[in-house]
Computed example of a mutant assay.
Amino acid sequence: MHSSPTWDPGQYLRHAGHRTRPFLDLLARVPDLPTAPGSPPRIADLGCGAGNVTVHLFDRWPDAHVTGLDNSAEMLEAARAHTPPEGGGRLDFRLADAARWIPDEPFDLIVSNALLQWVPGHTESFPAWVAALRPGGTFAFQVPGNFTAPSHTLLAELSTSPRWRDRLPTPRAHSTPVLDPAAYLEHLAALGCEVDAWETTYIQMLTGPDPVLDWVKGTALRPVLTALEDDPTARDTFLAEYAALLREAYPPGPHGTAFPFRRIFVVARTAA
């Protein structure tokens, strides 16, 4: 059994529009960065994935030097196809594990989109990340907050059923991989930050056959798909059982399948 999931950039990007919107909503609340005139902002995108949202940083800071960091070679290979838009910006990507990453240079902004739910104990890294920010710099992130939704609870129940529990990793729905906004606020306020924390539930309209299954294939289902990748028959059997449960929990309507998705946002600014 694999200890960590493998990623499929193509599958992840099938819902790029819905996955990008929270990142743009997060950036809209990031305050101006502290760089002096003529000095390009230094930005780290922690858990950059396929780089599809990383390039949006140049919409706000066209001359920035942005480094995308991810622990998936597959995702970084896809990300390197991106180039910064014209404007003097610079974009590079590096292999890094967020669970162990300690910045080795100062940043004006450290941003993370839908990553920290994969990093147990991620608040323990907050002091090092905040310490790496220049005065007036910002640490901003968003994480899913839908781990009690049917998409996750049904996955957990099926994965721990007698038929599958010896073959599959323990689902994260049996734990709490993220905190509530108020708890994140307390952690970062204790580090001297001015904190803006909130949550939003997006009602995403998905289309196509088994659209919720198609969504989770890009994210929450990756550990299962990784564990069963050497047994296609078992994989397909599991997917068929899970798809039937999802169709009942998220029945299609006349315009598609409504898929509520809660997300948690935090913007923490250091003292100038």
Rank of each mutant, 00 (worst) to 15 (best):
A268T: 01
L133Y: 04
L76C: 12
A140I: 12
P31M: 03
Q11W: 06
C193G: 08
Y12C: 02
H82W: 14
H15T: 12
P171V: 00
P162N: 00
F238M: 06
T160I: 00
D108H: 15
A114L: 06
M205R: 14
G208C: 08
T123L: 14
K217E: 14
R14V: 09
A50W: 04
D92T: 15
F265C: 10
S125I: 04
W101S: 12
L179D: 15
W129N: 15
R165H: 15
A36F: 02
A149E: 15
Y202Q: 12
I264Q: 05
A240L: 04
T201Q: 11
P150M: 03
R172C: 00
A79D: 10
V119E: 09
P31W: 03
A220V: 04
A268C: 04
L46W: 04
F126G: 09
N52A: 14
D180V: 08
S125W: 01
Y242D: 04
A244H: 07
R167H: 14
Q204S: 13
P162H: 00
V266K: 10
L69I: 05
P209Q: 07
L27N: 08
H255P: 01
T200Y: 04
C48R: 05
A227I: 05
T207F: 01
L245Y: 00
N146Q: 08
L155G: 08
L245G: 09
F261I: 02
T270S: 00
P37T: 00
L225Q: 12
K217C: 14
D166K: 05
R29Q: 12
S159I: 02
G17N: 07
I110R: 04
R222D: 11
E241K: 03
V111S: 13
S151N: 13
R172M: 06
F139E: 03
S3Q: 15
I43P: 11
A189G: 13
G49N: 05
D230L: 06
A131F: 03
S175A: 10
R60V: 06
T176V: 10
P37H: 01
F58H: 01
N71Q: 12
Q11K: 09
E241C: 05
P5V: 07
G136E: 02
I102S: 13
F58S: 03
T6D: 13
A140L: 14
D59R: 13
F259D: 11
L188W: 03
E186Y: 05
L115Q: 14
P62N: 07
A16H: 13
T257L: 02
F107L: 04
W198L: 08
G208H: 10
D25E: 15
P211K: 04
F238T: 06
P144S: 05
V143H: 03
V111D: 06
G68L: 07
T237E: 15
V267G: 04
P5G: 07
A244N: 01
R80H: 11
T160W: 01
L239I: 06
A98F: 07
V130L: 07
D108A: 07
Q142I: 01
L57H: 09
T170G: 02
R21I: 12
L245M: 11
N146V: 02
A16G: 08
G208Q: 10
G137C: 09
A79K: 02
D231W: 00
L245S: 05
Y242R: 02
P5Q: 02
A114P: 14
S112I: 14
V195M: 11
T160A: 12
T54W: 04
E77G: 13
E194K: 01
E186N: 13
P260G: 06
A227Y: 04
V143K: 03
D166C: 05
W198P: 09
Q117S: 08
